[in-house]
Design a protein around this nucleic acid. Structure first.
Length: 204
DNA sequence: ATGAGGATCCTCT
DNA sequence: GAGGATCCTCATA
């Protein structure tokens, strides 16, 4: 990984999350090339009741405690996978969930994976939709996103100016739903639909 | 060994 | 806006 990328990823998860907006995830999984430009992210870290690492290392979350720049992929709701970029120094359990993006390469492959009726804007407009378009599952947990030989890579772009970024509460969680740890690019049609968890308190 | 719940999505009303 | 799909992971015992 370049020293510039390293500097970005070593930061606090809430700094890294907005910095990943506009970055491109490139997948060669399944022998097909699909690239997605990220438009929505969420920060998760160890001192955070909503994070998988809140109760310490387990076999599932161990890569979140590893070096930054690797993929943390988890399985949820009995059928969905979600992709995170591990951040902060090794030993700290922190990552950024990639919640939504725009398919910019391999739309035909993404469409085939998602189904023929899915609208173009919706191909990767959600964390599980994004992994499905990219062909990601639990077997890809731990991949180095900054290794030139990896079938799954992350390309950082320039930082987006603050006035192009919106901030709000994270989606689908019970705990710490008041924190503004979700970030998205304003005016993007591929941002996921916001569905507040039934048990979550409202923003002040 | 067991049970509850989950960083979601789709379909239908 | 509600409900079901579907199974892994973790906590408790």
């Amino acid at each position: 990984m370049s020293s510039a990328a390293r500097d970005v990823l070593l930061g606090h998860a809430t700094q890294v999350a907005p910095r990943l907006l506009g970055a491109v995830v490139e997948s060669y999984l399944g022998g097909q090339r699909v690239a997605v430009r990220i438009v929505e992210t969420e920060a998760y870290r160890q001192d955070d009741p909503a994070s998988h690492t809140f109760r310490g290392p387990t076999s599932r979350n161990r890569v979140m405690f590893g070096p930054p720049g690797h993929a943390y992929v988890y399985f949820t709701y009995g059928m969905h996978h979600c992709l995170n970029v591990v951040c902060e120094p090794e030993g700290v359990g922190a990552a950024v969930l990639l919640r939504a993006g725009e398919v910019i390469e391999g739309a035909g492959t993404a469409q085939a994976r998602r189904g023929p009726r899915v609208r173009t804007d919706a191909l990767a407009a959600g964390p599980a939709r994004l992994t499905q378009s990219l062909g990601i599952d639990r077997s890809h947990d731990g991949l180095d996103l900054f290794d030139a030989g990896s079938p799954l890579r992350l390309h950082l772009g320039p930082a987006v100016p603050d006035d192009g970024i919106a901030v709000g509460p994270r989606v689908g969680i019970r705990h710490a739903a008041d924190k503004g740890w979700r970030f998205w690019l304003t005016g993007e049609p591929t941002v996921s639909r916001y569905t507040r968890h039934p048990g979550a308190p409202r923003l002040p």
